[in-house]
Simulated scan of single mutants.
Amino acid sequence: MNALDGLTVVDLSHAIAGPTCTNMLVELGATVIKVEPPGTGDGFRHYTEHGGEAMLSIPFASINAGKRSIALDLKTPAGIELLWRLLERADLLVENFRPGVLARLGLDFDALHARNPRLILVSITGFGQTGPLADRGAYDHIAQAMSGIALMNTGPDGPQKIGMPIIDSFTGYLATIGFLAALRRRDASGLGEHVDVAMLDAALKLVNTTVSVHSYTGRTPGGTGNRGFRLVATSEFYPTAQGWIALGANNQQQVEALLHVLGHPELIDDPRFRSHDARVAHYPAVRAWLTETLSTWRAADLEARLAEARVPVAMLREVGEIAQHPHVLERGTLHPVALPGWDRPLDVVGPGFATETRPTSTVPTLGSDTDAILAELGLDEAAILALRRSGVVG
């Protein structure tokens, strides 16, 4: 049995954060009905390459596999009425419109609660439903800039955005947690609630240690870029003679093991290496020594030796390398799904933890489940045909 078997989710979200939330819910067993505009669908379907008529970009497919798709025009009264019929039997509605859009559709939380008291509403926005910035839109890099993350990731060319949608994705995971908390409360009260999830809040949660240190001391700890939070040169990235290596020697035992592997155990008693405080105080000298010493090693050899010595370490790898790593393959982290319009299945990442889940089997084309969903709502073939001819559904 999967954790969310029997639960129905109506998904009005698009792009990344909302669909990431509902992707997690699919993996945990929920039935997710993705509501999309006829003709175009979720704009993420068209992101970079697509599969002909199927309109399935690879990024879209990666976070929408296993969902059902209904193409429904919410700009029409008939479309809204059909949405209401879905919501009356649903457990969760996920949306990521700007604040106020749902209310203009007549779907504010009070209206939803009146028609379906058990319905949980999860709203995902850039800055939340309240506060002076609530009306602003946001993208992942906007949240990175606003939260301080971009300045913490400063390199020689200035502040850098992290090269993947980390805030979008983490916001989706927090939305999942928020829903599960609301579901637990509903088990006790029988009533749904409105969960307000903001990308800025999610970004601040990612840097919560830095926020707390600053609030107490007035300082932003750790510097920026490669130096990270701990300010120790023995826990950073370094170029080697072949490839890059990430060292993770943070405590004294790990540092001593590192020095043994590098062939310099005499430095254990060196004042620069003797303690954490000493390594912080002598950061430039320690980093210069490591840069020179590691330049004579190959990253692969160093990774093997340090791992054997119980020092946290990793070569810097391309995504394609780690996706095919024996460790990832043995754990079943990825699984294939059918991808209509493409020449082979697509590997997608599962929920990210080991538990009983429902592997997704295919990615929905736009409106692929429209007729079946409408039939489940009690509409006959003639009614469905009439809706299709009028453009209410696609």
Rank of each mutant, 00 (worst) to 15 (best):
N2E: 08
L4Q: 02
H14I: 06
A15K: 06
I16K: 05
L25D: 07
I33C: 02
K34A: 13
G41E: 07
Y47V: 15
G51H: 05
L56C: 02
S69G: 06
L82A: 08
L86Q: 13
E88F: 00
E88G: 09
R89H: 03
L93D: 06
N96P: 07
P99C: 14
R115L: 08
I124S: 12
T125Q: 08
F127N: 02
G128P: 03
D140T: 14
A145R: 06
G155L: 12
G158T: 11
G158H: 14
M164Y: 08
I167S: 01
F170A: 10
Y173T: 10
L174T: 05
I177K: 07
A181M: 14
A182E: 11
R186L: 04
A188Y: 02
A188E: 14
H194G: 06
D196I: 09
A198P: 15
A198D: 11
L206K: 00
N208P: 02
S212P: 00
V213P: 06
P221E: 09
N226G: 05
R227H: 09
S235V: 14
V255I: 12
V255S: 04
E266Q: 07
R272I: 03
F273S: 00
R274T: 11
D277S: 11
A278T: 03
T293Y: 08
L294P: 11
R298P: 13
R305A: 15
A309I: 14
M315P: 10
L334H: 03
H335T: 15
W342V: 13
D343A: 08
V348K: 09
V349M: 13
G352T: 05
F353G: 03
E356T: 11
T357H: 08
T357K: 00
T360E: 10
V363D: 06
G367Q: 08
D369F: 09
A372K: 00
A375W: 12
E376C: 03
G378D: 11
